[in-house]
């Protein structure tokens, strides 16, 4: 049982403010992904929770106990490192059992636990090998097994799959999610890969410039981005933005078309729509196709609309040529609005 509470955590490195007033509660056994571009502070936050870094301000609570003054080993956590940090001078067995040995656990118990976790990660046959004799994927499994062997309340992962090739990453993603769900641990997973975040997370915390911009379920983050940054970061390609000017009565003019917008707003807004939420319709926006990318499952068309680049995902059967003018209409209930002043979503 371990709820993690991050209360008013800030971190400064000299003049540089890496984290601003972070508040986040992670439920017991939740799989939380910290998602953001490099330099957004996600790894710093993870290292503060872990105890490898100390916060300049704020508190960390794990399982109802304040831990920010405790050493990493007394926090009930374990960690999977980005470069695995599998000790090259120890066998796989001793690597997985490293933390248990440090706890002075008896040989029999170490053996039992190591064999069980190795079984979970399907590396029983590698126990006598050294890390230099393993592939990247196998090393990754050892690193996860070592963390699981501690039977921690919380498991922290810092971009654990980023060094694997694409196919292996997809395979490990599903497997890791399964293993973690079975181990009943709370997990915090740092990544810059939104596909990883979307597919694995119970909740995603999108981080930007040392702040958490939105913490919500993957589908919520995708469908209802809380801020322009999230809308422009999540999704491949991300949301399209167009200028919207108020016409009164909750109506907004977007590229010459009128849409129902947030009734309370009476200033310029950003109209946002996902590329896949565009359909061809007679009364749509006239958009000139610039680049046509047939991606197999669908067709990605980059057009010019209202003087800006605008992307639409269309059916792969469509025949579109560059230079052609398309009539694109948004799916009405998928339209989102952002206030350019605050960059936040307006309903």
């Amino acid at each position: 049982m371990a709820v993690i509470e991050i209360k008013n955590v800030a971190k400064r490195f000299g003049e540089y403010q890496a984290l601003h007033d972070i508040n986040l509660t992670i439920a017991d056994q939740e799989f939380m992904v910290l998602l953001g571009a490099s330099g957004c502070g996600k790894s710093t936050l993870l290292r503060i929770i872990c105890g490898l870094e100390t916060a300049t301000e704020g508190e960390i609570w794990i399982g109802g106990k304040r831990v920010d003054h405790l050493a990493p080993k007394d926090r009930g956590i374990s960690m999977v490192f980005q470069n695995y940090a599998v000790f090259p001078h120890l066998t796989v067995f001793e690597n997985i059992g490293f933390g248990l040995r440090m706890q002075k656990m008896s040989n029999d118990d170490v053996k039992r636990r190591v064999e069980r976790t190795a079984g979970l990660m399907h590396i029983e046959q590698l126990l006598t090998r050294y890390s230099g004799e393993l592939s990247g994927g196998q090393r990754q499994r050892v690193a996860v097994a070592r963390a699981l062997a501690m039977e921690p309340d919380v498991i922290l992962m810092d971009e654990p799959l980023s060094n694997l090739d694409a196919l292996l990453r997809m395979e490990m993603r599903a497997e890791l999610k399964g293993v973690l769900a079975e181990s009943n641990t709370t997990a915090i997973y740092v990544t810059h890969d939104q596909v990883e975040a979307m597919s694995m997370a119970d909740r995603i915390s999108v981080m930007h410039e040392g702040k958490i911009v939105q913490a919500a379920s993957p589908i919520e983050v995708y469908r209802n981005p809380a801020a322009e940054f999230v809308a422009g970061f999540i999704g491949n390609p991300p949301m399209n933005f167009l200028e919207a000017t108020p016409q009164g009565g909750g109506k907004f003019s977007v590229a010459g078309h009128s849409f129902d917008g947030p009734s309370a707003a009476n200033s310029n807004l950003q109209f946002a729509i996902r590329p896949e939420d565009m359909t061809l319709a007679e009364n749509g926006f006239p958009a000139v196709a610039k680049v046509v990318e047939p991606l197999g499952a669908h067709l990605l068309v980059t057009c010019e609309l209202d003087g800006k680049l605008f992307r639409a995902i269309l059916d792969s059967e469509m025949q579109v040529k560059p230079g052609e003018t398309l009539k694109l209409a948004p799916v009405k209930d998928r339209i989102r609005w952002f206030d350019p002043e605050t960059t936040l979503a307006v309903a």
């Binding site: 490898l52 080993k73 956590i77 374990s78 490192f81 940090a85 090259p88 490293f98 933390g99 440090m102």
Partner: peptide
Amino acid sequence: PKEYYEAGEVFGATPWQRFLKITLPM
């Protein structure tokens, strides 16, 4: 690499143990 020491710290090795179990062998 520094990561080995961090791993040692997270998995409960004291500074002396980190010296004996990580620095010396490596």
